[in-house]
Simulated assay, not measured.
Amino acid sequence: MSIDYDGRRFRALGGGDGTCARYSQRGDLVWAVFEGGHVRRGTITGTCDEGGVLRLAYTMVLETGEVIAGHSVNTPRRVGDTLVLREVWERYGEHAATGVSYLEEIPATEPAGGAR
């Protein structure tokens, strides 16, 4: 599945807490800015392979002032008309944790809040 992520917006599946990420892409390089909900500001940088799989590093600052860093591998799939990313993530340092999250693309016609 070849995907161009440039200009796409994502949030937690089901709407989440209002955090929204806006992606940019040039060739295999992908990056995003995200905010909203408990996140004051976050950034993502990584690569996209020919199958649309993203390998990303991220940092974020929460409303509490905590700084969190980690990495994820996001695998795309279509669910009806919606692009969904299965995100397998790992956080580092004092916030060390692992998990799986799901992100859904926000339709272009829908306001998202968060990152603009």
Results as ranks from 00 to 15, higher is better:
Ser101Gly: 11
Leu62Met: 14
Arg41Ser: 05
Thr109Phe: 11
Thr47Ile: 06
His95Asp: 04
Val79Met: 13
Ala97Cys: 02
Tyr102Ala: 03
Asp6Val: 01
Val79Glu: 15
Val73Asp: 01
Gly36His: 07
Thr47His: 08
Arg41Asn: 05
Thr45Phe: 09
Glu90Ala: 11
Glu110Thr: 10
Leu83Lys: 07
Gly80Trp: 05
Val61Thr: 15
Gly113Cys: 12
Gly37Asp: 14
Trp89Glu: 06
Asp49Gln: 06
Ala97Leu: 01
Trp31Gln: 04
Leu54Pro: 11
Arg77Pro: 01
Met1Val: 13
Val88Ile: 07
Ser2Gly: 07
Ile44Phe: 01
Pro76Tyr: 03
Phe34Asn: 03
Glu63Lys: 13
Ile68Glu: 11
Leu85Met: 10
Gly113Ile: 14
Gly7Lys: 10
Ala96Asn: 08
Asp49Arg: 08
Ser24Arg: 15
His95Arg: 14
His71Leu: 06
Ser24Trp: 03
Ala21Arg: 10
Ile44Gly: 00
Arg26His: 10
Ile106Thr: 04
Val73Phe: 02
Thr64Gln: 04
Tyr92Val: 13
Val33Trp: 09
Ala32Leu: 11
Gly65Trp: 06
Ala96Cys: 06
Leu13Thr: 01
Val79Asn: 10
Thr109Ser: 14
Pro107Arg: 04
Asp28Asn: 11
Ile68Ala: 00
Glu87Asp: 15
Ala69Tyr: 04
Arg41Cys: 02
Met1His: 12
Ser101Cys: 00
Gly70Met: 09
Tyr102Gln: 08
Asp6Arg: 04
Gly37Gln: 08
Thr64Leu: 02
Met60Phe: 11
Trp31Ile: 00
Arg55Phe: 04
Ala108Val: 13
Met60Glu: 15
Leu56Asp: 08
Arg116Gly: 11
Thr59Pro: 00
Arg22Lys: 15
Val53Trp: 05
Thr75Glu: 12
Ala97Trp: 00
Val53Gln: 10
Thr98Pro: 00
Pro111Thr: 05
Gly18Gln: 08
Gly65Ser: 11
Tyr92Ile: 09
Gly93His: 12
Thr47Ala: 04
Arg77Ala: 12
Asp49Trp: 09
Phe34Val: 02
Gly18Arg: 10
His38Tyr: 04
Ala96Thr: 12
Pro76Thr: 09
Gly16Ile: 07
Asp28Trp: 00
Gly52Leu: 12
Cys48Pro: 03
Glu110His: 05
Ala97Ser: 15
Leu103Gly: 00
Val30Ile: 06
Ala115Lys: 10
Thr45Lys: 12
Leu29Trp: 08
Thr64Ala: 09
Arg55Ser: 14
Glu104Lys: 03
Asp28Pro: 10
Phe10Glu: 09
Arg91Asn: 15
Val39Leu: 05
Arg78His: 13
Gly52Asp: 05
Gly114Glu: 04
Pro107Asp: 09
Tyr5Met: 06
Ala96Arg: 15
Gly16Phe: 06
Glu63Asp: 14
Arg77Ile: 02
Glu104Leu: 03
Gly14Asp: 03
Ser24Pro: 00
Arg26Asn: 09
Gly93Ala: 13
Gly93Asn: 10
Glu104Phe: 00
Ile68Phe: 01
Phe34Ser: 01
Ser24His: 14
Gly80Asp: 14
Gly80Thr: 05
Ala57Lys: 08
Ala112Arg: 10
His38Gly: 13
Phe10Asp: 09
Gly16Asn: 08
Gly99Ser: 09
Thr98Tyr: 00
Val100Gln: 05
Ala32Glu: 08
His38Trp: 06
Glu94Thr: 13
Leu62Asp: 01
Glu94Val: 15
Val33Gly: 03
Ala21Val: 02
Gly37Thr: 12
Asp17His: 10
Cys20Leu: 15
Val39Arg: 03
